[in-house]
Amino acid sequence: MQTAREQHLVEFFVKDFYKRTVELEIYLQEKYHLNFVRVVSTRFDRTTEAISRQVGFLSARYLQALASQVATIGIGWGNAVSYFVDETDYFLASHLTIIPLVGGMGLLNLDTHANKLASKIATKLNAQYSTFYAPVIAASKKEANELKKSSLIASCLQAAKNVDVAFIGVGNEVESSTWRQLNYISQAETDALAQAGAIGDVVADFFDETGQRVQTDFSDRLIGITIDDLKRIPNVVAMAVGTPKTRSVRTLLENNVINALVVDQDLAEALVQ
C-alpha cells in the first residue's frame, strides 16, 4: 500500500461538501473586512425553513462567543431575528441587557416584534431587557417627532443607538418587503418609497443603492434607530436568506453598515458575482 501511495496509484482524500461555503466565507470576510462570516449550504434541496433555522443557529453561536465581551445587545425585528432568537440556547449571561432597536408593532405577528424577541432571548440568558415604549409607525410625522422628544422614548432611542452589538434582519425590495407582507404599509406608501429610490430596509429605516436614508411621508413616521445609527454601532450582525436580498445586503456591505454576516449559499454566490 505504501508503494502504491508513493507512486500515486492510490490516493486518499476527504470529500468536503462544504468547501464552497468556506471559500465564500473567506472571500466575503476579506473583501468587506468583516469580523465574522458564515454561509449556510443550500445543497440537496434544503427547505427555506431549514436554511433559515441554520442561519439563526450560527448567529446564535456567534452571540454566545461574544456574550462575555459585551454588556448590551440590540435586537431588530422580522423573520430572520425570530429564527435567531428561537435557535439561541439557554446559557447564563446575567450581566447582559437586551435592547429592542425599534418600537412595537401592534397586536399582530407578535413573534417577529423587537419587544417580544428581546424579552424572549433575555429569558434564555437570564439577562435584563428593556421595552421600547412606542409604536414603530406613528400616525403622522408630527406625532413621530413629538414621541421622539418625550423623555421615555428619547431614552429608548438613546439606549438602542449605543448597544455594543446589534442583530438585525435585512429587507429586500419594498414591494416584497416584510412591511408589505404584513400590511404595515399601503400600496401607495410602497410606491412612494420605490419612487424615492428605496431598495431595502433595516430596523426602522429605508435606504437607497448608495446606502443613504430614503425619506417619504411613511419613513418619516417610523420610530426606531436608522441606518445612520447602525453605522455607529461597533458590531452589527446581519442575517439574510435568499437572492432577492442581494442588492440590499451588498449595499450595506459596501457602505460599512454591517460588520458580520450570516447568509445562505445562494445569496453569498450572488454577492460575489
Rank of each mutant, 00 (worst) to 15 (best):
A166T: 06
G106D: 05
V14S: 12
L28T: 02
D201F: 00
R250V: 00
E173W: 00
F167R: 04
A204R: 00
Q158K: 14
A198S: 10
Y90K: 11
S94R: 13
V174S: 03
T123L: 15
T246R: 05
A166E: 03
N172V: 00
V37F: 10
A154P: 04
T243C: 07
D111Y: 14
S151Q: 12
Y133E: 13
I26E: 14
E23N: 12
S119W: 11
A60H: 06
W179Y: 14
F207I: 01
E11S: 15
Q158A: 15
H95M: 11
T112Q: 11
E87V: 01
A204N: 03
T47Q: 11
A188L: 13
E11W: 11
Q128I: 06
I75S: 07
I227S: 01
R38A: 12
Y27M: 12
L222A: 05
A114Y: 10
A80Y: 07
S68Q: 15
L117F: 12
D89V: 13
S155D: 13
A67W: 11
Q2Y: 09
R180A: 08
R61L: 14
Q212V: 00
G74P: 01
V55P: 09
K120M: 13
L252F: 08
M105I: 09
I26H: 09
E173D: 13
Y18T: 11
E143H: 06
G76A: 02
P100G: 07
L58C: 06
T246V: 06
T112L: 07
K31D: 03
T226W: 13
S186R: 05
G197S: 03
L252W: 09
L267T: 04
Y184G: 02
I168T: 03
I199N: 01
E6C: 11
S59V: 08
L125C: 06
A154D: 13
S151T: 10
F132H: 09
I225E: 02
W179T: 00
T210R: 13
E254L: 08
S52E: 12
S94N: 15
G104N: 14
A160R: 01
A154T: 09
G171N: 02
A93M: 10
A127Y: 05
D208C: 03
A139F: 11
D220S: 15
D228T: 09
A194P: 08
